[in-house]
Amino acid sequence: MSSDWETLQNRSFLESNARARAIGLADPGTFTELAGPRCRLSSPHLPLLGEAVEFDDGIVTGVGRHGSRPLFIASQEGRFVGGSVGEVHGAKLVNIVRMAHQAYDRMLAETPELPEERRPAVVISFETGGVRLHEANAGLLAHAELMDQFQDCKGKVPVIGIIGGRVGCFGGMGFVAAATDAIIMSPFGRLGLTGPEVIEEEMGKDEFDASDRALVYRVTGGKHKYIMGDCNLLVEDTIAAFRQGLGKVLAMSYAEIDRLRRIGSLDKVKAQLRTLAALVEIAPRDSRDVWTFAGNPAAETLVDMKLDDFLRTVKRLENAS
């Protein structure tokens, strides 16, 4: 079992499925799946529309450990209906976060002096285009409930987002991801609100050519998001690297983790607005102009640069570090 866990660690996060990611993000042999395939909680809506179903409705939820912390894990499966949030999928996601802060409340009630490094944490591997259109009302509601849960976690349970799957994290879930305490991405990860295809459809190919993947990544990809400060840690594409990144965040005090948030306080909003004002000033025509503005004169070379060289040399926007 543990040798198997070892193999998972070296595996590409991008290539792995949601379950392998969930198992590999927890400590060896500690992951227990909740509401898994055995429960057969598939979508009640998709069959009526003649669409395929999945026993886990496209999300793996469960509990494991990270060091001395209980780790509540959700991992979306991008290959099933684009990782979209339907009713069951959403309920599983909302409830795994709810379980985390309920566990926190219980544990603190029992042991008021519980050291920080033993308190629960949440990690969500986002791989989703957002709401599942076939069951959009329930899916949207789940987005709102999830935001609520994040609020309930505030001051108690750190919520960490991970983005490294092929689908990326788009649509309403782009907002949800932005509301987490910290975001870890690989260069293959993508984060945004409106998906590239939708922008092209609405605004035309001249505005945004979704088939130009280099452009798509310059606007939504891990490296760009790291420079912008929309992601806190950029890691290699292995399960181990994501796990180490998670370890880095969870080794911090809650106060330190809270400082990683990109939004959520007046100061943060002011800082974002200052950056925005500065960017309007330079009127960028491409992400590369923003990178140059951030202090990277050879902006074009950043795209193909190896990750460790990138992390060593890149300059981020002022409010990013």
Binding site: N17, A18, G36, P37, R38, R40, A52, V53, E54, F55, E77, R79, F80
Partner: peptide
Amino acid sequence: DFLHYGVVGSGDMEVI
């Protein structure tokens, strides 16, 4: 007793 395998991607399937 029980085994689950696979992902319901396009052109794919899962089995219990």
